[in-house]
Every structure is written in structure tokens, then in C-alpha cells.
Amino acid sequence: MIVPFSVFDTTYKTKEKVVISQMLSCICDASKPAEYLTCGNLVSENGFVHLHRTLDFFVLILVQEGTLHICQNNRTYDVRSGEFFLLFPGSTHYGYKPTQGSLSYCWVHFVLPGSPADTVKSLPRSSEDHYPTESIRHFNSALKERICLPEHGKISPEKRSQLLFLQLLDLAKRNRYQITWSCHHALNLLLLEMSCEYQQAEYFGLDMLPTSVQDIMEWVQSHFDQPLTVSGLAEKFGYHPTYLSALIKQYTGYPLITYINRTRIHVSKNLLNSHTLTIRQISSMCGFTDEKHFMKLFRQFEGMTPTQYRKAFNQKKINTL
């Protein structure tokens, strides 16, 4: 899921215990696709400072390693690994201090139909109390057919968005960085995925998912590299194993053991983009004790072997400025 960061401090409470704050977002109809311009992967060993500039298009940044220190509209941000940042047209941005250590992030330039006034909005977000009003539910319904991304947020633990970003970079390099329909479509798929994760987390998922289920899912996502069993998790969270597995299936569509394995496979897909790790190492890092079992599950879920997946999307442009 994507967790948005509020960029405005205005909040208020109603009798229904809803807290509304404002956040700067880009929003557009999904039926009017974004236009791809260019993309790449910035890599710096140490001391990177982002250029001081004002652009007339959007820039989406997804940090893979390190922390990007950036300022936009006189607000400073520290964008860490697994977080994204959106630069808006007409907004001045720059690095406010050098990075310490390695930094790597994916970036893509794009434009949206209409003027910035039409696509850059301050939108309400619900509070962490999750007591939605009818007005927020109506607002949620209106977002279903739109791309909506906040200025700063986190991608899902499964890193689906990062995989789509890497696929976009691969397509761009294969097409010699010419603007092609495949790049347009890949960009819009990336934006839709990130937007969908954000909307589900902020408006749909969190107020519908029981806290107990959230706790179990987050535990699996945080401890996927450790030995996990249905009986062990049932004992830890105070459930009967059969009931717990059925409970997780009710909200995820998968029995608990399948949810555990799918989480591990999602993580392995991200690690496969690193050619410094062997299949055996990745298998172990994702909590599998048997490399052959890992390969069997990977083929079952993804329709190809880990090696085939690794070779499918492995090209990208690397820049240092």
C-alpha cells in the first residue's frame, strides 16, 4: 500500500471523529492518459545534491537506496528507500543538503492533459481513526476512475510499483529512449498501480480491514525472511490455526500459508533485479529453506522461472546528475 504524507497542517474534527487534512496531489481522469517524456535511474556514490530548477512537467521519483534530501515550494523532505516523491510543474525544487553515502532512484518525466491548475489539487484525507463520513465515501467513489497521487508517499511492501518502474526503464532503453506507445502504456500502468494502492490504503482498505488482520499481515510483511507457520502465527495472535487461515482468506483471497508464500515471492521479484545475488541467496533471504521449493512456487505464481524473470526486464539508463 502507499501511505501519503500530509503537506498542509489544517485539520478539524467532527462529531463522527473524522479528521480531515489537506495534501497536495496530482489528479486526472484515467481515460485521459499521461504522456511519457523520458526516464532513467540516477546513481550516486556520495554527496549528491539535486539541481535547483523549475520545470513545466511532472517528475516522479522512486528511491531505491539511500535518502534524497529535496525541497519543493519551500518545504523540505527526506525521501528514503521505498518512498516516492512527485515534483509538480511550475514548482521550484532543489536539493537542500548533500546525501550521505550511496543514493539510487528511478525517475520519469511526464505531462498530464490540461493545465497544472486542473491536475494539481489540495485533497482531503481521512484520519488514522478511520471513522468515515458519507461525504468521504462519496469522495472515494469519485476517485475510483482517476489517477490520484500525493506529493510524498510509500510504496507497498511487495514493491509492485517498483517492479513496474523497472519495466518502464527497460522498455525505454530497448526502444533507444525514443517516445513510443509501449512507454506511454507502461507509464500509465505504473501511475494507475501507484494510485490504486494509495486509494485503497487511504480511503478504502484501512477503514474496512480489522486491526487484528492488519497486524497479522504487517507481521508477515516484516518477518517474511524468518520461519513462519500457520500454527506459529495462530499461537502468537491467539487464534485457532484453521480459523486464522480462513480469516486471512476472507480479506486477502488467500489462505494464510499462500499469503505468506505470495509475500515472499513478491519480495524475491524485487531482489531478482539485483544481478549480484544468486537464486540461492535470494531464496534464503526471502525465508525459503529449500531453493527448489522456492523455484517451484515462483513458477506457480509467476508462470516462469526466477532466471527467466530476471532476464525479462534488466536494461535501464543510469545517470549521475
Rank of each mutant, 00 (worst) to 15 (best):
R174G: 00
K144M: 12
P113N: 09
Q308H: 05
T14W: 02
R280H: 12
R125F: 11
Y77F: 15
A186D: 09
L60M: 14
P116W: 07
V43D: 02
S156P: 00
Q315A: 10
E65N: 12
N74W: 07
Q64V: 00
V19R: 13
Q221H: 10
G82M: 06
T38M: 03
G47P: 01
R53V: 10
L62R: 03
G90M: 08
S126K: 07
H275A: 00
C196A: 14
I216S: 06
P4N: 01
N261T: 13
D78W: 03
F139L: 03
R125Y: 08
V120L: 10
Y105D: 05
S6P: 09
G82F: 11
L277Y: 14
N175G: 00
G40R: 08
D78N: 15
G253W: 05
D118R: 04
D118M: 06
G40P: 09
I147D: 11
I136T: 05
T14A: 08
K236H: 14
A30V: 13
L123D: 08
V59S: 14
T92Y: 02
H69Y: 15
L187Q: 13
E197H: 13
P210W: 10
K13D: 08
V59A: 08
F301A: 05
P227Q: 04
Y36N: 11
T276E: 09
A186R: 11
